[in-house]
Design a binder for these strands. Sequence first.
DNA 1: CATGAATGAGGGTTCATTCAT
DNA 2: GATGAATGAACCCTCATTCAT
Lengths: 190, 190, 190, 190
Amino acid sequence: MTVKNEIIAKAVELFAKEGYENTGVTRIVTEVGVTKPSLYHHFGSKEGLLSSILEVYGNQFIDIFKDELHYSGDLSYAIDCFVIAYIRFVKRYPMFFRLYKQLYQSPVESDSYRIVKPFYKQLLMRLELFFTEVANHHTNLKTKTTWMSYSLLGLMDTYIIHHMTLGSLKDLEDEKCRQVVKQFLYGVFA
Amino acid sequence: MTVKNEIIAKAVELFAKEGYENTGVTRIVTEVGVTKPSLYHHFGSKEGLLSSILEVYGNQFIDIFKDELHYSGDLSYAIDCFVIAYIRFVKRYPMFFRLYKQLYQSPVESDSYRIVKPFYKQLLMRLELFFTEVANHHTNLKTKTTWMSYSLLGLMDTYIIHHMTLGSLKDLEDEKCRQVVKQFLYGVFA
Amino acid sequence: MTVKNEIIAKAVELFAKEGYENTGVTRIVTEVGVTKPSLYHHFGSKEGLLSSILEVYGNQFIDIFKDELHYSGDLSYAIDCFVIAYIRFVKRYPMFFRLYKQLYQSPVESDSYRIVKPFYKQLLMRLELFFTEVANHHTNLKTKTTWMSYSLLGLMDTYIIHHMTLGSLKDLEDEKCRQVVKQFLYGVFA
Amino acid sequence: MTVKNEIIAKAVELFAKEGYENTGVTRIVTEVGVTKPSLYHHFGSKEGLLSSILEVYGNQFIDIFKDELHYSGDLSYAIDCFVIAYIRFVKRYPMFFRLYKQLYQSPVESDSYRIVKPFYKQLLMRLELFFTEVANHHTNLKTKTTWMSYSLLGLMDTYIIHHMTLGSLKDLEDEKCRQVVKQFLYGVFA
DNA sequence: CATGAATGAGGGTTCATTCAT
DNA sequence: GATGAATGAACCCTCATTCAT
């Protein structure tokens, strides 16, 4: 593992556990066993480090929205696939997910929000694109695409954090995920 | 308005906008027009200030969970009342709500989380109490009380933040709130 | 006990245990159960409090040098009496003695030294007066009066602190005190 | 001279003159012409700076107790050598000696005492080792080794401070030092 | 006499960042 | 690529003291 990747890995861990603002670069480099100028050589700044994290993990995250969101007639099935892939990603990189949630909820005028915002917008846009396609076939959903995007993300994340807090992320099996989808669809078509 | 209250008001605003960790006590007292020892006279520490905020606003928030969560046969009506009161509170103290959301999402090992945690637990407990009572009459809900609590909070907050982000909190009228309730109930009884 | 005396008592204790500079007035008034303006009403300032302490206890200390230092032919007996009285005082007010030693050793340019200096000078002067009188009868001591004063104080204090450190101040009985005197006299007449 | 040493030198001076508690790190770095983070880079904390001082000067001080305390039959000569070396050290580093005396006399519960205590204990232990060896040849001293250690230190220090206070440390010639030894020995064998 | 509230100045410490080597 | 050393700015907090009541 290269120094750059070691720093990224440690940073994700510490940012997630202690918070981006609370984690000093000194702590990161000390725990990795390198020096500060080394970090600045690779990332330019603390914000640069955060950006790199979003690039490495975030792009994989976005890929799910690219690859697993396909509507081909069966809405329930489409969302099923997506939710399962989404949750699989969270199980694989739980630290990154915690960091992402923390960053998104961070205050609007903070540095960290500024960095995560475009990333988050991309996710939402992909979702909205998907729901717009869906709405072509369910015309009654046409005015709800934005809300559906928010709503699906919110529902999934509530579900995930509920299990994270109880410390049982692995219990989140595919079968249970489908219940989330059902709940979402009931809401949508109400 | 007393100095103490002025400090609390300004702190809620700045903490919400810029983040608890990002806001220095110097900034708070400067904007209020007092000095640091004055803040420490009233609150003891920055954390004490945060606690005071939670006491002042948070207790009003908890009161909603105490006063507006009554089950008397009509579940839909009961939750309607609660959601409307909840959202009314958010409209009244939007800054506090943003702060509360930010704190709750803050990292588990941070100081701010430690302070908000008992407060959040109280909210959840009140909800669970309510749903337990409900489950006496709908036995098929008995195993779902915890999840329903999380879920209702999550759904409401998603809804609220969706509107906040779009800058149209006032558009959240009672009629629309009832849609949230419907969505929730559909999900629950699925 | 008046408030004034309560403050003095507590201040002696804290100054001795934690140091004059390390003890904040806040701590003193809190432990006594009064307010800061009350302290300032009685003593004017922190230095004023220290001065009051020196007046109350210090004057009793000086009295020993006044009352117990009489030369009437028998040098050994005279010093015996003085040393015994000196050590008796220390046993009675060990906290004050610790404070006095601490203050005397404190840096020349510190506030606390400035306050204790005149007090210490008085002690030395009394001693030197005594030894000057002695020297009238032992002409070979005439050039040594200053050194004898320092030396006697130093020897006693070393002895006392030695026992204080070992935690056995009460073991310092009169009989043992006389050994100190012998050691001093041997040294002087060497 | 490196920055680290410049800071140490200035700190010894200020700590000795104004007191450890009274001297702010700001003052030290300002007078040296560097910045605070530089001090913290080298010493970690104000206490770390004090520890470094004790290491640099204190170890030289302890070396005297290691190298100059040898008993080979002639007690008077042995102590002579030691006292002369001791006083020579004090003449060389008078500021450090003043600091050391101040620290030792500082209140038991203070930070500074905690740091100097192990250092002081080492000095005493070395002395006691020496006197224990002596007592093998003068069996009547066997029960007095601890007291002799305290006593010799106390006598020397009284002597030194007496001269320091009068501002004539250089007048403390070897010849005069031997008088201290005589006085000590008279006391011991009394 | 006693109090709650306020203050200017400074405490020690840490922040993200940069430089010469 | 990597380092030790240095920095300006800011951090939270506490000091002795004072004022109106």
